[in-house]
């Protein structure tokens, strides 16, 4: 910025800080709450400073036999969520990079139609088509199964579209040079297209992992067997106990732990993630 007006600087910073506080406050409250015992939390004032039950709460949520009545233990649900998120991420990327490859590099009848059909699914996210999808999954007997949990979420086009856009920026000469160099279509894909897509894949990994990790509605519909419960469902059920007190300190500890995998992934992939969104290798 070339402007140098103190008031404007003050204003922009004020907005920035306000925005930060709005985002950070619930997280802060969750962290604080996870360090108190249930008695403190049930009294009317919300504590703003850390309490002394940190280790106790976290070890209980991680090692307890059941997160709340009727639920499997926390780490079991975390594992379910992890499996679901990873399968969705890998599945979506695999399917969409291959279909984008087909659409951009092969001439086949109805190619354009195929692209538009894929494109239209962008307008139909899971939530919109959830009832018909549920019916199909139920009819196929896929309720309470990994397939039922993941496949309907894998089948969507977001990533296909992104890969197609990226492939179209790869110069035609790259393919031609590879053909002259004796690379067949799949060899071109493995040796050249895939490495060139590295940053895009990295960025999509982060986005899709989080997408899978926070799924709530779909897992709730297709699973009735607690063995398939995911974290997001479990957390919800922990606060809807019928009788007795809600173990807020455990709910908060669970919530804080549930935030960690996406954060770790973003930190770990940061370099790729930022590059993938802002620049492309020629």
């Amino acid at each position: 910025m070339v402007e140098n007006r103190p008031f404007l600087t003050f204003l922009t910073h004020a907005f920035l800080i306000l925005g930060f506080v709005i985002v950070a406050l619930p997280v802060y409250v969750a962290i604080i709450a996870s360090t108190h015992d249930v008695a403190t939390l049930m009294s009317n004032t919300v504590p703003l400073w850390p309490g002394s039950h940190f280790i106790e709460n976290y070890s209980e949520i991680l090692t307890g036999a059941s997160a709340a009545n009727g639920l499997p233990n926390y780490s079991h649900m975390a594992l379910n969520s992890l499996v679901m998120a990873v399968v969705i991420t890998v599945g979506k990327i695999t399917i969409s990079i291959l279909s984008a490859f087909a659409i951009v590099y092969f001439r086949f009848p109805f190619r354009q139609l195929a692209f538009w059909i894929i494109f239209v699914t962008l307008m139909l996210p899971v939530e919109v088509r959830i009832m018909p999808t549920y019916k199909i999954v139920a009819d196929l007997g896929m309720l309470n199964s990994w397939a039922g949990l993941t496949i309907p979420l894998i089948a969507s086009a977001t990533a296909t579209f992104l890969f197609r856009q990226f492939f179209m920026t790869v110069p035609d000469e790259m393919l031609e040079a590879a053909r002259v160099d004796g690379a067949g279509p799949m060899k071109f894909f493995w040796d050249i297209l895939l490495p060139l897509s590295r940053t895009n894949i990295g960025a999509l990994c982060v986005i899709l992992f989080i997408y899978g990790w926070v799924q709530y509605l779909w897992p709730m519909l297709v699973t009735t067997d607690p063995g398939y419960y995911t974290l997001m469902m479990g957390m919800k059920r922990m606060v809807t106990v019928q009788d007795g007190v809600i173990q807020w300190q455990l709910v908060m500890a669970g919530a804080v732990l549930a935030m960690l995998p996406p954060i770790l992934l973003v930190i770990f992939m940061q370099r790729l993630f930022i590059r993938g969104l802002t620049e492309t290798e020629k």
């Binding site: 000469e173 040079a177 590879a178 053909r179 160099d181 004796g182 050249i192 590295r198």
Partner: peptide, 29 residues
């Protein structure tokens, strides 16, 4: 196919493989 014709081509924009080293570029074919 181009590869079977026993020709080599030099392109206007060079079309080097950006993720490979010079050595790998030369060795790929």
């Amino acid at each position: 196919e181009p590869a079977e014709r026993d020709i080599a081509m030099v392109f206007q924009n060079y079309a080097l493989y950006p993720h490979m080293t010079v050595y790998q570029n030369l060795a790929y074919g």
